[in-house]
């Protein structure tokens, strides 16, 4: 358990939760100035209770790219992903050092409104999780909550985003129906439409295809490709072939440490680290 801060980034990484954001902006390596970077973690150390799950993670996520997050089970991929839209904040025993910057600004900055942050950084879960309301209401639920659409405009929103995920043809005659009568893959596409309807800048996908069949998986993968470059996508996957298919860049996480972050082909074919080489060769994890 290496909870020691990286000597390269000393003071701001040790700042208390929520504070020191302005300082972080100043000292963040290049995020604030470099428009290429959407999301940055600096010296992110994080745990629950006495356990440390992430140790001193520093990553840059390139804007408009699809970034795969790979690593053995339990390496902290989900934890890192959920940290990006502050879904961990209320978990019992949560503690954190270091910072995450969105467009150069700390996501824990007091001026950041967490609900607006989550609108900007959307999330799709491992299993589809439709809301108990009609298909149309599902798509528009987030947009309604953020007042992006009037009641009258809901149908248009539903059509636009269901079309975007390729579900419109299948559901256009049953918009008032329960989403739970859709297949698992259709439900996941519906959740994706719902996430897109709030116009996110970053989309976090946590193994979005792990409960789906190959056909539905392919549909989601193709969609993910079309989301970039308008939306920055981070996709957690256990399927290395999937990472190769969809991701421009790949981050390899192992035991809560960021091991390598690079162009996907580069990382798979000429990994800089021995650990990465072993993982992509299927020797552990």
């Amino acid at each position: 358990m290496s909870t020691q801060a990286d000597p390269a980034q000393p003071a701001e990484a040790a700042g208390p939760v929520g504070g020191r954001a302005d300082q972080a902006v100043v000292t963040a390596p290049h995020a604030a100035t470099d428009g290429q970077v959407a999301l940055t973690a600096t010296g992110l150390t994080l745990g629950f209770g006495t356990r440390t799950i992430l140790s001193d993670v520093c990553v840059d996520v390139r804007r408009g790219a699809v970034t795969a997050l790979i690593g053995p089970t339990g390496s902290g991929k989900t934890t890192l992903l959920r940290t990006f839209n502050r879904m961990n904040d209320k978990v019992g025993g949560y503690h954190r050092k270091g910072d995450v910057l969105l467009d150069g600004r700390s996501i824990w900055h007091p001026g950041v409104e967490v609900m607006e942050l989550r609108r900007r950084i959307g999330m799709l879960f491992q299993r589809p999780n439709p809301f108990p309301m009609s298909i149309m209401d599902n798509v528009a639920a987030g947009a309604r909550a953020h007042r992006l659409v009037s009641k009258a405009g809901m149908k248009d929103v539903a059509e636009r985003y269901l079309t975007a995920v390729g579900l419109w043809g299948a559901v256009k005659d049953r918009l008032k129906d329960s989403p739970f009568r859709l297949s698992g893959g259709q439900q996941q596409l519906l959740c994706l439409a719902r996430a897109l309807a709030v116009k996110p800048e970053v989309l976090l996908l946590d193994e979005p295809t792990s409960s789906l069949d190959p056909g539905a998986t392919q549909a989601i993968e193709e969609l993910v490709r079309t989301l970039a470059p308008d939306i920055t996508v981070i996709i957690v996957t256990h399927n290395l072939a999937q990472a190769l298919r969809v991701a421009d860049r790949t981050i390899f996480l192992n035991q809560g440490r960021m091991v390598e972050n690079g162009e996907t082909r580069q990382l798979f074919e000429h990994p800089a680290e021995e650990e990465t080489a072993q993982y992509v060769a299927g020797r552990f994890g």
Partner: peptide, 11 residues
């Protein structure tokens, strides 16, 4: 899961 879905959507 559906509750987290709502929170993650910024509700």
């Amino acid at each position: 899961l559906p509750r987290e879905g709502a929170i993650a959507l910024g509700m």
